[in-house]
Measured scan of single mutants.
Amino acid sequence: MAAGGDHGSPDSYRSPLASRYASPEMCFVFSDRYKFRTWRQLWLWLAEAEQTLGLPITDEQIQEMKSNLENIDFKMAAEEEKRLRHDVMAHVHTFGHCCPKAAGIIHLGATSCYVGDNTDLIILRNALDLLLPKLARVISRLADFAKERASLPTLGFTHFQPAQLTTVGKRCCLWIQDLCMDLQNLKRVRDDLRFRGVKGTTGTQASFLQLFEGDDHKVEQLDKMVTEKAGFKRAFIITGQTYTRKVDIEVLSVLASLGASVHKICTDIRLLANLKEMEEPFEKQQIGSSAMPYKRNPMRSERCCSLARHLMTLVMDPLQTASVQWFERTLDDSANRRICLAEAFLTADTILNTLQNISEGLVVYPKVIERRIRQELPFMATENIIMAMVKAGGSRQDCHEKIRVLSQQAASVVKQEGGDNDLIERIQVDAYFSPIHSQLDHLLDPSSFTGRASQQVQRFLEEEVYPLLKPYESVMKVKAELCL
């Protein structure tokens, strides 16, 4: 049975990233139509530049190519590739079939990587351009969430054990800070992308030097003109047959890092959902379990974690691919890159769409948070109580021993009897502590235990987050809708 299948058929496997999760716009960027249309555009740009620099290419040939950029006979191309065992030459023939007058000058002087690699770089750039505003929107939604809850005390956790208090907004800023680093890295790697350009079979530009009869300047002009037509500021000066596969490492490393950030955020949300302090959106008709109707599973956060793990592992592909590119190139890269580049971007696209949807509907339960604080705060307040007693004339050592005994009794009630923490009640009825009984409410005010959390939130948002989001103001209103 021949390899390949009808990918629109229910009898043929289709990647869930495309069929179930990723956005239509990201799927289109990695589609065959987008790819092969870009090949034709690159052939047109090459012909236009070659004509401008004096090669015998007519206006009629150029116009014929322009008129057929979208006229792609995919069936013919597939048949040609089956016959020739070469995808680029299959599309040269297919393009030439609908451009008979231009057929002889299509791909003039070029090698397969002229269309293959340059198209990949265009796709990487455009895919990054799709991700950047999506990530900015996630940051914006979380920034709104953090600002609104900047002063809401909550129990902090280290080692997932109760620690000092923080605020809900401050905790959210930990998430935002990681995503801001990801946004900066995505922008950097996007701006650092260079075009492969017009380089020939081993990167020496020998074929173009021959076409222009040894004119170095025209060869350099050709490279520059096509690079500018493709919208790049610069091209690699040095290439082998391909652009260095280190570029793929750079791009997928940034995406993998984004995956790590999203995994951490969504894990926190899942843990908070278990504590009943916070939940992701839950639709009115949504079913959490087929057997347990009360369940409210954090399905979206779980999906993000599941896909983020996949995204983090994909960076190993370009690392290994770059390491086995012998001399000017081997074909070890080809099949692998067809999979890992598309999957990385479709996965990143999915987790950003999902995280935006989550961040637009996060639900906080202040009463649950308050109750958990009441359970733990008495123990945390013991040092403040000791200091207040010393100020009232008591002995630190005597007070410490009193607190120690009462704390152990209260802990026994919590752990052995399943009761509430009654340390404060014990202190309130103990005559030894009568000098500070009137101060206990103040000493137990949760806001006095959150330090500068709310001020940190305000400063972080104003100095770091809002300036970073400013270039994306025009796209901030787009909502994230999930079908599944």
Results as ranks from 00 to 15, higher is better:
Arg33Ile: 10
Tyr34Ala: 13
Leu44Thr: 06
Ala47Ile: 02
Ala49Tyr: 00
Leu53Arg: 00
Leu53Met: 12
Leu55Ser: 05
Pro56Thr: 13
Ile57Cys: 06
Gln63Lys: 11
Gln63Glu: 11
Asn68Phe: 09
Asp73Gly: 08
Phe74Ala: 13
Phe74Gly: 14
Arg85Lys: 14
Met89Ser: 07
Ala90Ser: 10
His91Glu: 09
His97Arg: 11
Pro100Lys: 13
Ile106Asn: 03
His107Leu: 04
Ser112Arg: 00
Ser112Val: 00
Thr119Lys: 02
Ile123Asn: 05
Ala127Arg: 00
Pro133Ala: 14
Pro133Gln: 13
Leu135Met: 15
Arg137Lys: 14
Ala143Lys: 04
Asp144Leu: 15
Ala150Met: 09
Ser151Leu: 10
Ser151Val: 10
Leu155Asn: 01
Leu155Met: 05
Gly156Phe: 00
Val168Tyr: 06
Lys170Met: 07
Ile176Glu: 06
Asp178Val: 05
Cys180Leu: 13
Met181Pro: 07
Asp182Met: 00
Lys187Asp: 12
Arg190Leu: 11
Asp191Glu: 14
Asp192Met: 09
Arg194Val: 05
Gly203Asp: 00
Ala206Asn: 12
Ala206Arg: 02
Ser207Arg: 02
Phe208Met: 11
Phe212Arg: 04
Phe212Met: 13
Leu222Trp: 01
Glu228Gly: 09
Lys233Asn: 10
Ala235Ser: 11
Gln241Thr: 00
Thr244Pro: 15
Thr244Gly: 12
Ala256Trp: 01
Gly259Phe: 00
Leu271Ser: 03
Glu280Phe: 02
Pro293Asn: 01
Cys304Phe: 02
Cys304Val: 13
Cys305Ile: 04
Leu307Gly: 15
His310Cys: 07
Thr313Glu: 03
Leu314Asp: 05
Val315Trp: 09
Met316Cys: 09
Met316Lys: 02
Trp326Arg: 03
Trp326Phe: 15
Arg338Asn: 00
Ile339Phe: 14
Glu343Ser: 10
Ala348Asn: 06
Thr350Glu: 15
Asn353Trp: 06
Ile358Leu: 15
Lys367Asp: 04
Val368Asp: 04
Ile369Met: 11
Glu370Lys: 08
Glu370Met: 15
Arg372Cys: 04
Thr382Val: 09
Ile385Trp: 04
Met387Val: 10
Ser395Val: 03
Gln397Asp: 07
Gln397Gly: 09
Asp398Val: 13
Leu406Asn: 07
Gln409Leu: 10
Ser412Cys: 12
Lys415Thr: 08
Asp420Gly: 04
Asp430Gly: 06
Ser434Gly: 13
Ile436Lys: 04
Ile436Pro: 05
Phe449Val: 05
Gly451Tyr: 02
Phe460Gln: 02
Leu468Tyr: 00
Leu469Asn: 05
Pro471Leu: 15
Tyr472Lys: 07
Leu482Asp: 09
Cys483Val: 15
